[in-house]
Design a protein around this nucleic acid. Structure first.
Length: 647
RNA sequence: GCCGAGGUAGCUCAGGGGUAGAGCAGCUGAUUCGUAAUCAGCAGGUCAGGGGUUCAAAUCCCCUUCUCGGCUCCA
């Protein structure tokens, strides 16, 4: 009998009879591993444990603690969901049901039936019932003809459509209990592993993600091998919700929305405005240092401006409609971006190659008619302010400018403690060059230089082919929110289109006219989105230099209000932001309220402090820090909490 | 825009055909207090808006609007 050589992750190798299964290998290693094993990686592919290994292989056995194990677990859970659904609603048609980062979903067509929250509970308990049967997942190779026959008979148009794209000989079915599905696998050994089940929500999703197709019902769920883990997961979700910027924005009185003002149009409250203006100051300072010139442009522009830029043609119908005036020939648009205005600033006089780069920066408020369903707190709004700037430079300056912008973005992230971001280089699709504007060589050069600039600054980047804007390649920075949703913050984009459309020029050393390259960049992206992500990132406990209220002065009783007023006045004289809580409440109450409001410093003042010109310092979440002279507190505070500066 | 779930006091939420509720916040008074909620009283509502069914609608039905979870989109 022939043998196969199985290499384990630690490099050791063992021989097994040919056709050995992953489960048998696991058993030979240890009883415990066999009990917890869910799937196996064989030469880089993830397999079922029951599948026979016919030749030498490097393997890795996955348990719940591995991504590959969870993947199989949730994939199998999706099948279990489908089995339960079919048992409860015969005739249901299935789309696809993959595992995702947290759990799984299944797209289904329930015909005319609406699927609501009460249905979730029903399906959930059916799933539990079926899981207890310990049904084994059986893998079967099947010919394309037989597969088509099977789904024709069953009447499942979506599976038939999927089958069309699959090659004969590569098709497998998986079967558990009374349910058979077209599936590549892998799956866990049996349904009994699935102990805790939660169907999370129902959503609509277009078949194959195409708006023109029928909308299917997408059910999201998650499962665990232990009830305790499900409980922990649900608890974690609850905790994440507490960081939600929409909730904290309301509680900390940072911003609000009004139906009357209109959806997606944030109102900045006094405290939110302090935060926002501090961020602006921070960026202004860094930009001045980096050689930017601040400019200001109006909130509207004539339609002609956007016809020139090309935005009218591309977005005109799907955006805010033109503003009319008593003069019927006039039309203005709310500005959806600042670039065209900045192009006109570039054009106010002829430019020499010696003038470049020219860096025009503006906190420009723009308006975009986002789809109503897409609006989301501050992360997706219809009116927002970009920390925008446009760099007009020579082609040979692109790389250097990119490096400078990357430095600026990294300065922002570092100053605000974002260490978990990803950088994405978006390149054009070389197979479809017609989609893009600009010379081939310029693209090649810019794409190369963006990547080089990122590498030189030690950025770990993911290059995505085909994600470039039609007008140029870009580098985007993404950060996740409290619930794990990814948002794009900073962006740096090369643009070949606008310089051309606006006929931007400079006179080169050769006395000839040349076209400058334009770089759009916004390290925050937008103040709104940045603040949203910042709120979630720090759970409302802002860096003190940003905090709307830095200090609360809390007199023990009314008798010390006079001294407390003197304290708060002295703080204000030193540009320290704070408030005096002179309510007729006990000190415990005042402290609690300040803690809830996440005020970083609380200064308790009573008899002792008045006598010695002291304050009793308490820090948010850290309790009593003892008493110091007021002046000592001020000095220390100012020394510790200055606005971070760029290098 | 599409699918689903929602909108009750400033906030968090209960009530689900028969007189509109609680806690917190607010106001008034008492209290003058040492590190996370002092006590008492008072006030607060077109139950998102409009239409319908009914003797009777916060409650059932329809439309509109906004919010939430997704999908699509994102200059």
């Amino acid at each position: 009998m022939s043998e196969v050589k199985i290499t384990l992750p630690d490099g050791s190798a063992r021989n097994y009879p040919a056709g050995v299964t992953g489960m048998a290998i696991a058993q030979s290693i240890s009883e415990g591993l066999a009990r917890n094993a869910l799937s196996i990686e064989v030469n880089g592919e993830i397999w079922d444990l029951s599948r026979q290994i016919g030749k030498d292989a490097a393997i890795r056995i996955f348990t719940w603690n591995d991504k590959g194990g969870k993947y199989a677990f949730w994939h199998s859970s999706a099948h279990l969901f489908a089995e339960a659904l079919e048992a409860l609603y015969p005739g249901v048609k299935f789309g696809i049901g993959p595992p995702i980062e947290n759990g799984f979903y299944y797209d289904v067509d329930l015909g005319d039936k609406t699927f609501g929250d009460d249905d979730l509970a029903k399906v959930e308990s059916k799933m539990t019932e079926l899981a207890r049967k310990n049904s084994v997942f059986i893998r079967r190779d099947i010919s394309k003809a037989d597969a088509l026959e099977f789904f024709k008979k069953k009447g499942d148009p979506y599976k038939l459509e999927l089958l069309q794209d699959l090659a004969d000989g590569s098709i497998t079915f998986y079967e558990q209990g009374n349910f058979t599905d077209l599936c590549r696998g892998p799956h866990i050994p049996n349904t009994g592993f699935i102990k805790a089940i939660k169907l999370l929500n129902v959503a609509g999703a277009y078949w194959r993600g195409d708006e023109k197709n029928k909308m299917l019902t997408r059910v999201y769920g998650i499962t665990f091998p232990k009830q305790k883990e499900l409980d922990e997961y649900l608890h974690m979700l609850e905790e994440a919700k507490k960081r939600d910027h929409r909730k904290l924005g309301k509680e900390l009185e940072l911003f609000a929305f009004s139906e009357k003002v209109g959806m997606g149009l944030p109102l900045w409250l006094p405290k939110g405005t302090v935060l926002r203006e501090r961020l602006e100051q921070f960026m202004r300072k860094a930009q001045i240092k980096a050689g930017y010139d601040p400019v200001v442009t109006p909130h509207i522009g004539s339609k002609a401006l956007y016809v020139t830029s090309g935005h009218y043609e591309k977005y005109g119908k799907d955006s805010f409609q033109p503003i009319h005036t008593p003069d019927a020939t006039e039309e203005f648009l709310l500005k959806p971006m600042n670039c065209p205005h900045h192009c006109e600033i570039y054009k106010v006089r002829p430019r020499s190659y010696k003038d470049l780069p020219i860096r025009l920066a503006e906190f420009g408020t723009v308006y975009r008619y986002e789809q109503s369903g897409e609006l989301h707190g501050l992360t997706r709004v219809r009116g927002f302010t970009q920390d925008d700037a446009h760099i007009f430079c020579r082609p040979d300056q692109v790389k250097e400018e990119f490096i400078k912008v990357i430095d600026l973005v990294l300065h922002v992230f570092k100053s605000l403690g974002f260490d978990n971001y990803t950088a994405q280089v978006s390149l054009r699709d070389p197979a479809d060059k017609k989609k893009y504007i600009g010379d081939d060589e310029l693209w090649d050069l810019a794409e190369k230089e963006i990547q080089e600039a990122a590498d030189e600054r030690g950025l770990k980047t993911v290059a995505v082919i085909g994600e470039a804007a039609f007008y140029g390649p870009k580098l985007d920075f993404m950060v996740k929110d409290a619930l794990g949703r990814s948002w794009q913050l900073g962006t740096i984009q090369v643009d070949y289109q606008l310089p051309k459309r606006f006929e931007l020029e400079y006179v080169g050393a050769d006395n000839q006219k040349h076209q400058p390259v334009m770089i759009h960049r916004a390290p925050f992206g937008s103040l709104e989105r940045f603040i949203a992500v910042l709120i979630e990132h720090c759970a409302g406990n802002f860096p003190i230099w940003l905090s709307p209220e830095q200090v609360a002065v809390l007199p023990i009783s009314e008798r010390f209000n006079d001294y407390a007023s003197k304290v708060i006045q002295e703080l204000k004289n030193q540009d320290i932001r704070g408030y005096l809580d002179d309510r007729d409440e006990k000190i415990g109450r005042k402290i609690r309220d300040a803690e809830v409001k996440k005020v970083p410093y609380m200064l308790v003042v009573g008899e002792k402090e008045v006598a010695d010109n002291q304050v009793s310092v308490r820090r948010h979440g850290m309790g009593d820090q003892g008493s110091v002279l007021l002046q000592a507190f001020v000095d220390q505070f100012l020394a510790d909490n200055s606005m971070p500066e760029s290098a």
